[in-house]
Amino acid sequence: MKYIRTLLLLILCTTLQAYADEVPTIDPQATFTTDEGEETGTSYSGSAPLTVVFHANAENIGAYTPHYEWRFTKEGATQPYLVRYEEETEYTFTEAGSHRIVLYATFINGTDTVAYTKDYWQDAQPITIQISESKLEMPNAFSPNGDGINDVYRAKSNYQSIVEFDAYIFNRWGQKLYEWHNPAGGWDGKFNGKDVKQGVYFVLVKAKGADGRKYTIKKDVNLLRGYTETSGVNPTE
């Protein structure tokens, strides 16, 4: 009799464990695409625009029918500003501030429901994204002399969270020589494929930051073809 009770208990435990292994689970993760490449995790702090792919990472779905609801909320808000219903979804962040992303997932199999919703997220860690405030500066000069140092006129490397960008180079007569529309781009000191003369040119930049700040930058640009590192002049200042 004792042997039978032990055997029944073992069967029950095995059945319960098998059932537990079959219950659907989620493990939300995000893949962040930056200038340095891709990284996956549940938090990120950096500059906009930032493209992120969100993964539900659901397991043990079996015969259950899944329903997904990604909720994007800004810090201090009570309602999401965006809701997505895919198992995997992509979004590009262009607004500064703190963003909180949670996945409401419900799995239904007949009368059996497994839910990861409001109660679950009371204790679970959401995906958090911090988008920095914007910053943009343009240098006064550059030296396109082929030495591999400061050969291209572009935004200073400390720019961040710039979501709109238009830059134009003019000569002293107001003729447009070049334009570019990404802060990572720039002017190599050429017009129609030929080097322009050393001298003073003019840049006009209109841009917008993730924090809503608008930039209008107008300044002279000194093109210094004879500059070398030992000349004592820093053309990026």
Rank of each mutant, 00 (worst) to 15 (best):
101 I>R: 13
51 T>H: 04
86 E>C: 06
139 P>T: 09
232 G>R: 10
111 T>K: 05
219 K>C: 06
215 Y>A: 11
120 Y>R: 01
203 V>S: 02
52 V>W: 09
234 N>L: 08
38 E>I: 14
23 V>H: 02
105 A>D: 11
90 E>G: 08
102 V>N: 08
158 N>D: 15
161 S>Q: 11
114 V>A: 03
215 Y>R: 07
148 G>C: 12
124 A>L: 05
53 V>E: 07
101 I>T: 08
51 T>D: 06
27 D>V: 01
105 A>N: 03
25 T>M: 14
24 P>G: 09
51 T>P: 00
42 T>C: 00
32 F>A: 02
230 T>E: 01
140 N>L: 00
152 V>G: 05
113 T>Q: 07
123 D>L: 04
79 Q>V: 13
63 A>G: 02
171 N>L: 05
150 N>V: 05
210 A>N: 00
118 K>L: 10
234 N>T: 03
172 R>V: 02
74 K>T: 08
157 S>D: 10
68 Y>Q: 05
111 T>A: 09
212 G>S: 01
151 D>L: 02
208 K>Y: 12
130 Q>F: 10
62 G>T: 13
180 W>A: 14
102 V>D: 13
89 T>D: 13
83 V>M: 12
52 V>L: 10
57 N>W: 08
124 A>Y: 09
227 Y>S: 02
7 L>S: 07
148 G>T: 12
11 I>V: 13
166 D>Y: 15
195 D>G: 02
86 E>G: 04
54 F>W: 07
13 C>Q: 11
171 N>I: 02
68 Y>C: 04
214 K>S: 05
39 E>N: 13
140 N>R: 10
222 N>R: 12
214 K>T: 06
122 Q>N: 09
203 V>D: 02
30 A>E: 10
143 S>W: 12
131 I>V: 13
